[in-house]
């Protein structure tokens, strides 16, 4: 039997090759056939999750609620020391220094990332801004969000901190962060679906030990982190409780 693994569509394109190498490594280690299927849209990926077509997933924290509480996935690992933080940026020469300088009817550019957008909206609350009194410019990726700022078609933009950090020097020189979240416990997690539940503990052990072998460490570095960290079901349940409080 061949299982299907997928990755949250918000991963950086720099890591595509890394995920294919990781898939090959996991197949060798588990002795199972695993096909890697990548998506460029959360909606299409979500439909396949609902249709039970996915068995392993490196998921965005906002997808984790459905995967754990509705589809019976088990959370087993998360990248160590790599929480999902959001940053709000403005154009470098903008007069805006703090969130409170943003006013009603301003335009905010954002990509299709539910986690970043939710935290970004929370960081706008002290300025009395919400989805009803701002204009939203939805973009396909963070480079286009930055372009909105540089071209002055948006006053501010939401970025995944990791995506901001990995932008070119040229782009970064033209935009300026005004606030960065420090939430710490919200992060992408690796989950195993019900069809592989009898292998979940084996996969957990493999991932927790991966950084201890040279080849494993190199693969992890090609994914943008140094080690997996154990993610207990309670860690995930608490993360979902926390996300729930951010949804209003």
């Amino acid at each position: 039997m061949t299982y299907t693994m997928t990755v949250s569509p918000d991963f950086s394109p720099d890591y595509i090759a890394g995920w294919y190498i990781f898939n090959t490594w996991l197949q060798k280690k588990t002795g199972e056939g695993i096909h890697l299927k990548l998506y460029d849209s959360f909606d299409v990926q979500r439909k396949d999750i609902i249709d039970d077509k996915i068995d392993l997933i490196f998921a965005n924290p906002y997808e984790a609620a459905m995967l754990i509480r509705e589809k019976g996935f088990l959370a087993i690992a998360a990248p160590a020391d790599k929480p999902d933080e959001a940053v709000i940026c403005v154009k470098d020469d903008s007069d805006i220094q703090t969130v409170e300088d943003l006013k009603e009817n301003c335009t905010i550019a954002m990509a299709d990332d539910p986690q970043v957008n939710s935290v970004g909206m929370i960081m706008l609350e002290p300025a009395d801004l919400n989805a009803k009194n701002i204009s939203i410019e939805k973009q396909k990726n963070y480079v286009l969000v930055a372009k909105n700022l540089i071209n002055e078609t948006a006053e501010a933009g939401f970025f995944l901190l990791d995506a901001y950090d990995n932008m070119s020097k040229f782009v970064k020189s033209q935009i300026r962060p005004i606030i960065t979240s420090e939430i710490s416990v919200i992060r992408h997690i690796f989950l195993v679906g019900p069809k592989l539940s009898n292998k979940a503990e084996d996969i957990r052990a493999l991932l927790n030990d991966m950084h201890n072998e040279d080849k494993g460490l190199k693969i992890l570095q090609s994914l943008g982190f140094e080690a997996w960290e154990n993610q207990t079901q309670e860690d995930s349940e608490f993360m979902l409780d926390l996300i729930d409080t951010l949804s209003d």
Binding site: E100, I122, M123, E125, P126, A127, E237, D241, T245
Partner: peptide, 17 residues
């Protein structure tokens, strides 16, 4: 957890003036 309330979580964020 498993249908039973085991505690409460309080999350506080910056309020609007």
């Amino acid at each position: 957890r498993d249908g039973k309330t085991v505690g409460f979580a309080s999350i506080r964020r910056k309020p609007s003036r």
